[in-house]
Simulated assay, not measured.
Amino acid sequence: MSITQTMSVSMQCVSAVLAGSFLLTSGQAVAADNEPDAHFTCSGSGSQSYNPGLILLARPVNMTNEASFPSCTGNTVASATSATPLFTDHLNADCLTLSPGGHHYVNYVWDDGTKSLFVGTTKVSRQPTQITVSSSGTFTAGRFAGHPVEAVITYPAPAFPPYLLSCLAEPGLTSLSGPTSVTVLPIL
């Protein structure tokens, strides 16, 4: 089974409408219909791209994310092989602060055509040489509705080598990449 994700982040003035995604619905699905014992983790790599590129001074930036998860293990989707999240975020960013945390929505489209809507919050932890973006929330609609979900991606800090030189002049730092994982937990 493979996964395709479409992410849209809701922070300040963010909007993204992506083909093939579905709209947020207000109803919670019944856990019994959504594989309550499902528990799996997918890992791979993710990237963020910035337009215009990040420099040392904050400026308006469009940030887009992509990821793939070629390795998935667990009791329900042990054969899952990949995912591709996309979201565009419009914010003020620079090489020192990168992106803030916030509330966001993620549309997952599974290889069997079913969909899941993730609603959660993101926390950004900045260490001297890396940035860790952690998301936690719940699938609120579609397949696996009611399941808790946790995701993590780690990027190198852009204000340190080898990225520092890119931050000093135009076009700036245009992308970062790092390892990522997403875990779907069973409904308790």
Rank of each mutant, 00 (worst) to 15 (best):
Q130Y: 09
T174I: 14
S68C: 01
D37L: 12
T174N: 09
M63C: 08
F87I: 10
C72T: 02
P60D: 09
T81P: 03
A169Y: 13
M1D: 11
S2N: 08
Y155P: 02
I131K: 01
I131T: 15
S181L: 11
Q12A: 13
D37P: 00
H147R: 06
P179R: 03
V14K: 09
F22E: 12
G102R: 04
Q12I: 05
P60V: 03
S99K: 12
T132L: 11
S43M: 11
G178L: 05
N107E: 07
V182Q: 11
K115R: 13
T76G: 01
N107K: 03
L56N: 12
S134D: 15
T129S: 12
T64C: 00
L185F: 09
T81V: 13
A145M: 08
M1K: 08
E35F: 07
L176T: 09
S134A: 15
P70E: 04
F40P: 00
H103C: 10
D37C: 01
S125N: 12
F22W: 04
S43N: 09
V182L: 13
L57A: 15
A16D: 12
G102E: 02
T41C: 12
P161L: 08
S135K: 06
S8E: 13
G53R: 06
L23V: 13
S99D: 09
I55N: 02
M11E: 09
P162N: 04
R126T: 14
N51C: 00
G120V: 04
S71Y: 07
M7G: 14
L86D: 07
P52C: 01
P156E: 08
